[in-house]
Design a binder for these strands. Structure first.
Lengths: 208, 208
DNA sequence: CACTCTTGACTAAACGTTCAATCAGGAGTA
DNA sequence: TACTCCTGATTGAACGTTTAGTCAAGAGTG
């Protein structure tokens, strides 16, 4: 009941590329039909009731690709010197995976003006991401590997440190020269973060 | 020759709101004319040769609003305990200024698919922002207030820590509950950053 | 009169969507 | 085999609407 025809997948694939390249309004039924090598654009309406529903199905189908963090529970007890660089590298490598970049270019621009897409993106991607980091950092505090602090803030902070490099890489490639490599960046931010939250405080941190 | 008529400004203001609300394609000449309370849409073409050029003028006119950092040289020698929180607060307060948010909603979605807008935004806003932080941090290293490190990475890191909170605030307001307040966030990230780059190293940092 | 500004009517193209018609192939029947 | 019927898939043309942009004529003002 779900294997569907060949055509559906063919149209969905073409629609993904067109929507990612030109946006919802920029892509037309005609251009999608052409990219899918259909002789008639009317055929799309045999498989999908409207352009809108075609778009939604494309989004729902490809949103999960952005879930970079897959099995969070596994690493809960691994040391941050190991987990945080892994985490950061996983996201920075996203920029090298064309399929993932395409989905980003599909979703991000539309999410800004479509509350439903924003919600899906927020709930499935952002919440998951922040949630994982937050529980992981909480755990590290419990284990005494990091000093007690506001993990709500530090989780956002670490995500931001990673995403700034990713964002620059994706949207402002002109800053590649003059910027650190991914590996240099990862090393730098992990060092700042870990030393910044190190439990062994020399003296002045919480002056009493 | 540049004071122009009243009408120009009237049209530009209406165009800003329409473009910010609906995007370039979503906003129409008709809707812009209506919001500007013109009786005829044709009047727009007396002041602007095309919708495209109207859009570009709107962007060029309002882009400078995003230059939150105004006079960087002044604070070059002030201590980071003072400058960094100021810097972070300045950006987080941007979310409370409707005019600034409007310009963000105008530029960000279009910048993704318009290389020229991307370039302008990158050169005038992002480069300036990163440039300021980088030279400031370099100076602090020279002054011995921060330990020697890769300022290209740390400047991006700090910007990221600020922008993650700003981005969540702007685009995912549903995360307000469960997240830190701006002031809590600022305190947290500055503490992490400064302690992470503190010059007094207990021992293990650069093991030799 | 000459000039700047303003207007409503208009155009041509592009858009999403609908529609009647057609096709290939399989099932059922004699 | 020959015939009819049915069904899912496909087509080209057309629909009504919306769009950016044009145009000639007029209003207001010096």
């Amino acid at each position: 009941m779900d294997e569907s025809s060949d055509r559906r997948a063919q149209i969905l694939d073409a629609a993904l590329e067109e929507f990612a390249d030109k946006g919802f309004r920029g892509a037309t039924i005609k251009s999608i039909a052409e990219r899918a090598r259909l002789q008639s654009q009317a055929l799309i309406y045999w498989y999908f009731p409207s352009k809108e529903s075609l778009f939604r199905e494309v989004v729902e189908r490809h949103l999960p690709v952005l879930q970079v963090v897959r099995e969070p529970e596994r690493v809960l007890d691994s040391p941050p010197e190991e987990v945080l660089p892994q985490f950061a590298r996983a996201y920075l490598e996203a920029a090298n995976r064309p399929g993932l970049v395409r989905v980003l270019r599909l979703i991000v621009p539309e999410a800004i003006r479509r509350p439903d897409v924003t919600e899906m993106f927020g709930r499935h991607i952002v919440a998951r991401l922040l949630g994982f980091l937050q529980t992981y950092l909480e755990r590290q505090v419990e284990l005494g590997r990091l000093r007690p602090h506001d993990v709500r803030a530090s989780s956002r902070a670490f995500v931001g440190m990673v995403l700034s490099q990713l964002g620059i890489k994706l949207f402002f490639p002109m800053f590649k020269t003059g910027g650190p490599t991914d590996e240099e960046h990862v090393r730098a931010i992990v060092e700042i973060f870990l030393q910044g939250l190190s439990p062994e405080v020399p003296g002045q941190e919480t002056r009493r």
